[in-house]
Computed example of a mutant assay.
Amino acid sequence: MKNVTLKVEGMSCGHCVNSVEGAVKKLGASGKVDLNAKSVTVEFDESKVSLEAIKEAIEDQGYDVVK
């Protein structure tokens, strides 16, 4: 399993947390949002899902992955 912390712009509330964590979960990964740090820490199996797919899923929810 790989852990990556991504900087995500545009999150400000509980709905944002649920949207981002839900999008990551649908891919078979787990994510934990930190609103104060404007980041999400994702744990995923690289053989099942790519980091690029995770970033795309978050961006599809309307947020910007900046790192």
Results as ranks from 00 to 15, higher is better:
A57F: 11
G14T: 04
G14E: 06
A53V: 09
K67D: 13
E59I: 09
K38W: 06
L35V: 04
G31V: 00
G10E: 06
C16I: 02
S19I: 05
D64Q: 14
D60M: 09
V33K: 05
Y63W: 12
I54H: 05
A53M: 12
E43H: 10
A29W: 01
Y63I: 08
E46D: 15
E56C: 07
N3T: 13
N36F: 06
K55T: 07
E46A: 14
N36H: 02
V66F: 13
S19W: 03
Q61V: 06
E43L: 07
K2P: 02
K38G: 10
A23W: 00
N36A: 11
V4M: 11
S30I: 13
Y63N: 10
E9G: 03
C13F: 06
L51P: 13
V65T: 13
M1K: 11
D60P: 04
E9L: 08
S19F: 03
K48M: 11
D34T: 03
G22I: 07
K55I: 11
I54P: 01
G62K: 13
S39W: 00
G22P: 02
A53N: 15
V17Q: 09
K32Q: 15
E21W: 01
D64K: 15
I58S: 09
S12Q: 14
C16F: 02
V49N: 07
Y63M: 08
V40M: 09
S30P: 06
D60R: 12
K2W: 15
G10K: 04
N3P: 01
S30M: 14
Y63R: 09
K38L: 11
H15L: 05
E59L: 08
A29M: 01
V33Y: 01
D45S: 03
M1H: 08
K25L: 08
L35T: 01
G31R: 02
K26N: 10
L27V: 06
D60I: 00
V42N: 05
Y63V: 08
S12R: 12
E59W: 11
I58D: 04
E56F: 13
V66H: 14
V66T: 15
G14M: 03
E46K: 07
G62L: 14
E43M: 08
S12N: 11
T41D: 07
E59Y: 13
E46C: 00
V40F: 02
V42R: 02
L27E: 00
